[in-house]
Deep mutational scan, measured.
Amino acid sequence: MGSVRTNRYSIVSSEEDGMKLATMAVANGFGNGKSKVHTRQQCRSRFVKKDGHCNVQFINVGEKGQRYLADIFTTCVDIRWRWMLVIFCLAFVLSWLFFGCVFWLIALLHGDLDTDYKDDDDKSKVSKACVSEVNSFTAAFLFSIETQTTIGYGFRCVTDECPIAVFMVVFQSIVGCIIDAFIIGAVMAKMAKPKKRNETLVFSHNAVIAMRDGKLCLMWRVGNLRKSHLVEAHVRAQLLKSRITSEGEYIPLDQIDINVGFDSGIDRIFLVSPITIVHEIDEDSPLYDLSKQDIDNADFEIVVILEGMVEATAMTTQCRSSYLANEILWGHRYEPVLFEEKHYYKVDYSRFHKTYEVPNTPLCSARDLAEKKYILSNANSFCYENEVALTSKEEEEDSENGVPESTSTDSPPGIDLHNQASVPLEPRPLRRESEIGSRR
């Protein structure tokens, strides 16, 4: 089982795998120059863009038009607004034209077009017409509009002379109601789609790998820009990579689940303020055997998904993003964004995407760390350097704002901070800030 798991979770494809794949392509008759073999020097295209759209195009789909027309309502909801407006206008105009032609044909076959009612006051002739005051196609078209929109100006009306005319008036009224219901329903469904809710759900630009509770963890940050909550919010993550099976089958995008606390339930989050999602790199993680150097040379993509129900409509929305291997910062942490004021908490989104480097973060893999092949620094050293990194950030910001350097908390000259780390230190809580992250 261990060997199978290692093969499945191998992220960085070796040169031997690339040569094996190329040999397979030639042997199977696919070596026509169009096949692409992804190596370390040639990274694959992003499968999920940063804005959440999937970078996929469908080609050679059989009976595409028929399949889309069979699900016309979903098609109308998914198309762009400009095409929705075109369909909206065409549906009414074509129905008016169709029934206008029908009423014109009825008048033509009944002989109503030969009668001039402007110079004739004989009401008996008017009563013999199928539709009064309809003696041309324009008049028939206007009567069709008046019937379907129930305008009723009063000059044109159907008589009991022709039952077919009466039937067409009733039929057009029913068709008009159906068109109204369909168009209004599609427009309302399109307006109520929770897709735009994703514009106020954000992911951090970069993911980070750092120590948390004595273990290497992959972390990324999510935030909600609205005050309205995302009900039943939960997160998922998958690692996408290519691999070759033991039988020699090439899988271009193998999807591997990344555990973010599904078993323990901590994948469900209360997204009021930005939260750091934590994936513990343990023996079940696809990143277990990867060191910093392996991450730098790897070719994979981590897709992160945030799902929840919109509070206003109770409709489920899904926000997506992805991180390539070069977008994962090893040995970094996110800057705090949640600050405790006197009577409330304040979230500073200008710090949302910012990170700071944490010294002495192990550069080895989580496996080597678990097997004690890498000796961690003293816990006080880690905490102290973590505090120094934050303090230096604040000093830089104070210097930019014009604060005198004498007010900063610099260490005395001639003292090495790293050498001082081995000395037991008193706890130094942050002056006014605390970061709330997901705790395992």
Results as ranks from 00 to 15, higher is better:
7 N>F: 04
10 S>M: 10
12 V>W: 04
13 S>E: 12
15 E>G: 11
15 E>Q: 10
17 D>M: 05
20 K>P: 06
20 K>Y: 06
22 A>S: 13
23 T>L: 01
25 A>F: 06
28 N>Y: 05
30 F>Y: 11
32 N>I: 11
32 N>Y: 05
34 K>T: 13
35 S>W: 07
35 S>M: 09
36 K>C: 12
37 V>C: 05
44 R>F: 10
47 F>Q: 03
50 K>D: 03
50 K>R: 11
53 H>S: 08
54 C>V: 09
55 N>C: 05
57 Q>S: 12
58 F>K: 15
61 V>Q: 14
62 G>Y: 07
63 E>T: 12
65 G>S: 10
66 Q>R: 15
66 Q>E: 04
68 Y>G: 08
75 T>M: 07
77 V>E: 07
77 V>L: 11
79 I>N: 09
81 W>Q: 03
81 W>H: 05
86 V>P: 06
88 F>I: 13
89 C>R: 01
95 S>R: 04
98 F>Y: 01
99 F>I: 00
100 G>D: 01
101 C>Q: 02
107 A>Y: 05
108 L>P: 02
109 L>P: 02
111 G>A: 03
113 L>K: 02
114 D>A: 15
115 T>H: 06
117 Y>L: 00
118 K>G: 00
120 D>L: 00
121 D>E: 11
124 S>P: 03
125 K>P: 11
129 A>C: 03
137 F>L: 06
137 F>Y: 14
138 T>Y: 03
142 L>T: 02
144 S>G: 03
147 T>Y: 03
148 Q>L: 01
149 T>L: 04
150 T>F: 03
151 I>A: 09
152 G>F: 03
152 G>C: 02
152 G>Y: 03
155 F>M: 10
156 R>T: 02
157 C>P: 04
160 D>P: 03
161 E>Y: 02
162 C>A: 01
167 F>D: 02
171 F>C: 04
175 V>Q: 06
178 I>C: 13
181 A>M: 15
185 G>H: 06
186 A>M: 09
186 A>S: 09
186 A>C: 10
196 K>V: 14
197 R>F: 10
198 N>T: 07
198 N>K: 13
198 N>L: 10
199 E>V: 06
202 V>A: 09
204 S>D: 00
209 I>R: 00
209 I>E: 02
209 I>F: 00
212 R>E: 07
213 D>M: 13
218 L>M: 12
218 L>F: 03
218 L>D: 01
218 L>C: 13
219 M>A: 04
219 M>G: 01
225 L>M: 05
225 L>E: 08
228 S>R: 13
230 L>T: 09
232 E>H: 13
237 A>G: 07
247 E>H: 12
247 E>F: 05
247 E>V: 11
253 L>C: 11
253 L>M: 14
254 D>M: 10
256 I>E: 11
257 D>R: 05
258 I>V: 05
259 N>R: 11
260 V>W: 00
262 F>M: 12
263 D>Y: 03
264 S>R: 13
264 S>Y: 10
266 I>R: 13
266 I>S: 12
269 I>V: 13
270 F>E: 07
276 T>I: 06
277 I>S: 02
279 H>P: 00
281 I>A: 01
282 D>S: 14
286 P>I: 01
288 Y>P: 00
289 D>M: 08
292 K>I: 02
295 I>R: 01
295 I>N: 01
295 I>E: 00
297 N>W: 04
297 N>P: 00
297 N>S: 14
301 E>F: 01
305 I>K: 11
308 G>W: 04
308 G>H: 04
312 A>L: 09
313 T>C: 10
313 T>W: 11
313 T>M: 11
314 A>I: 05
314 A>L: 09
317 T>A: 12
317 T>Q: 09
320 R>F: 13
323 Y>K: 00
324 L>M: 07
326 N>S: 09
329 L>P: 00
330 W>K: 01
332 H>S: 04
334 Y>C: 02
338 L>N: 03
339 F>P: 02
340 E>C: 06
340 E>A: 05
342 K>S: 08
342 K>E: 04
344 Y>M: 04
344 Y>Q: 12
351 R>M: 06
352 F>R: 00
355 T>P: 02
356 Y>C: 15
356 Y>R: 15
357 E>K: 04
357 E>Y: 04
360 N>T: 13
363 L>N: 12
367 R>T: 01
368 D>P: 02
368 D>G: 08
371 E>F: 03
371 E>P: 06
377 S>M: 04
378 N>Q: 09
379 A>M: 08
379 A>H: 10
382 F>R: 02
382 F>T: 11
385 E>M: 06
386 N>L: 02
386 N>I: 03
387 E>G: 02
387 E>A: 02
388 V>R: 12
391 T>L: 07
391 T>F: 11
394 E>V: 10
395 E>I: 08
396 E>G: 13
402 G>Q: 13
404 P>S: 13
405 E>W: 06
406 S>K: 07
407 T>S: 10
408 S>L: 10
410 D>T: 08
411 S>M: 11
414 G>W: 04
415 I>H: 10
418 H>G: 13
419 N>S: 11
424 P>C: 12
424 P>Q: 13
424 P>Y: 11
425 L>F: 07
426 E>I: 05
427 P>G: 03
428 R>W: 08
429 P>A: 14
434 S>I: 08
435 E>V: 11
436 I>S: 15
436 I>V: 13
